Amino acid sequence: MTKTNLITGFLGSGKTTSILHLLAHKPADEKWAVLVNEFGEVGIDGALLANSGALLKEIPGGCMCCVNGLPMQVGLNTLLRQGKPDRLLIEPTGLGHPKQILDILTAPVYEPWIDLRATLCVLDARQLLDDKVLTNQNFRDQLAAADMVIANKADRETPESRQALENWWAQNGEGRELHHATQGAISPSLLDATRKNLAPLPESAEHSHSHASTKGLAALSLPEHQRWRRSTNHGQGYHACGWIFDADTRFDTIGLLEWARLAPVTRVKGVMRIPEGLVRINRQGLDLHIETQNVAPPDSRIELINDADVDWNLLQAALLKLRLD
C-alpha cells in the first residue's frame, strides 16, 4: 500500500514550495510520487517539480475532480500501478474542493492500494484578512477537511494576521493540529499523522471551467516549429492566462522581473529561461520571490491568475518585447 497525503491550500499559500521541501528531506530509501493539479493549463508546478527526484503526473486545467473524477483516477492509477511509490503526495489546485478527491481516495476500489494519512492544508494567515478569500467556499472547505493546518509564511505575518489566525483557531481548531512554517519548511514526519474524525464535508461548491470536455490530460505543449503559445482559463470567479515558449527563447532578466512585479494580477508563477540560466518566479499579491540557477529549463512557462478579467493582450505584448532571441 502507498502512504498517501492530500496537501491542499488556497492560491499562493505555498503548497508547491512545501512539497519541494518535503521531497528534499524524504527518506533516502523511499520512492515518492506527486500528483499535481493546476487551475491553468500551462503546467508550472510540473516544471518546478521536474527535477525533484519524484515520480510526477500532471493534471492541468483545474479538472482533477471534474467529470466524476476521471482525470484524477487516470493519473492516480498510472502512478500507483507503474511507479509503485512508497508515498504519494496529491496537490490539487488552489481553487480545488477536497471532498471529491477524498471520496475517490477512500473508495473501495483503492482500499488495497492506498493508505490514506493526514490531510494538510497550507495557509497564509493573511488570507484570513481578505474577505474575498475568506468567503470562498473552496477556501473554507479546504480548512474544514484538514487534519493539520500549516500556517506558512510565518516570516510575513503581521499582528493583524496573527490575531486572525488565533481567532480562527479558537473557533475551528478542535480535533486538528496547527504547525507554523517559513518557506514551506515542514517535517516529513508530519505526513504520518493519522486522519481525524472530522465532521463530514458539505457538498462541493459549484465549479466550472472554460475548457471543453474533450480536453487532454497533459500540460500545454508546443506544436513543432511553433515558438510560443498562450492558454486562458476561467472559473469560480478567477481568470488565468499562461504562456509557454520554446527552448531557444530567452528573456531579459531585469525586464522580466519588473514585468512580473508590476503585472496587475494577484498571482504570478513561472520558470523562465534567461541569459544566466533559469529564474523561478513566484508572486502572491505584493510578495515576490525569485530564485535563479545556472541550469536552463527545457522551455519557459509562466502563468498569471487574477480575481477579475485582465487585458491579457496588453500584458502579452509587453512580455514578447522582453525576448532576446
Rank of each mutant, 00 (worst) to 15 (best):
T4S: 11
L6T: 08
T8M: 01
G9Y: 00
G12R: 06
G12L: 10
S13C: 05
S13Q: 04
G14W: 12
G14V: 01
K15N: 05
T17M: 04
L23V: 13
H25Y: 05
K26F: 04
W32D: 06
A33Q: 01
V36Y: 02
E38G: 00
F39C: 11
G40E: 05
E41S: 01
E41N: 06
G46F: 01
A47I: 02
L48A: 14
L48R: 11
A54D: 03
L56R: 13
E58I: 14
G61F: 07
G62T: 13
G62F: 02
C63W: 01
M64R: 01
C65W: 04
C66R: 02
V67T: 13
G69W: 08
G69I: 04
Q73T: 03
V74S: 05
V74M: 08
G75R: 01
N77A: 10
L80S: 14
Q82P: 07
Q82V: 15
R87M: 10
L89K: 06
L89M: 06
E91Q: 03
E91A: 04
P92K: 00
G94Q: 00
P98W: 02
I104K: 08
A107P: 11
D115N: 12
D115K: 04
T119Y: 14
D124L: 00
D130H: 09
D130T: 07
D131Y: 10
D131S: 13
T135F: 00
R140N: 10
D141T: 02
A145F: 09
A146S: 02
A154Q: 09
A154T: 11
D155Y: 15
T158R: 00
T158N: 09
P159A: 00
S161C: 01
Q163I: 00
L165T: 07
N167T: 10
W168N: 03
A170D: 14
E174T: 13
L178N: 07
Q183T: 10
A185H: 14
A185N: 12
P188R: 05
P188Q: 08
P188F: 11
D192M: 08
R195M: 04
L201G: 13
P202S: 13
E203Q: 12
S204T: 13
A205G: 15
E206R: 00
H209Y: 08
H211G: 09
H211M: 11
A212M: 04
S213I: 08
S213P: 06
L222P: 07
P223A: 05
H225K: 14
Q226R: 05
Q226E: 15
R227K: 12
R227Y: 01
R229M: 11
R229G: 08
G235V: 07
Y238H: 14
Y238K: 09
A240C: 07
A240P: 06
C241R: 11
C241A: 08
I244C: 11
D248W: 03
D248Q: 04
T249Y: 15
T253L: 13
I254W: 10
L257C: 06
L257G: 03
W259G: 12
L262P: 02
A263K: 09
V268M: 09
V271C: 02
V271A: 12
M272N: 03
R273V: 09
R273E: 13
R273F: 08
R273A: 14
V279K: 11
R280S: 15
R280N: 10
Q284N: 08
T292K: 11
N294W: 00
P297H: 03
P298A: 05
S300I: 04
D311K: 12
A318I: 06
L320C: 06
L320R: 04
L324G: 04
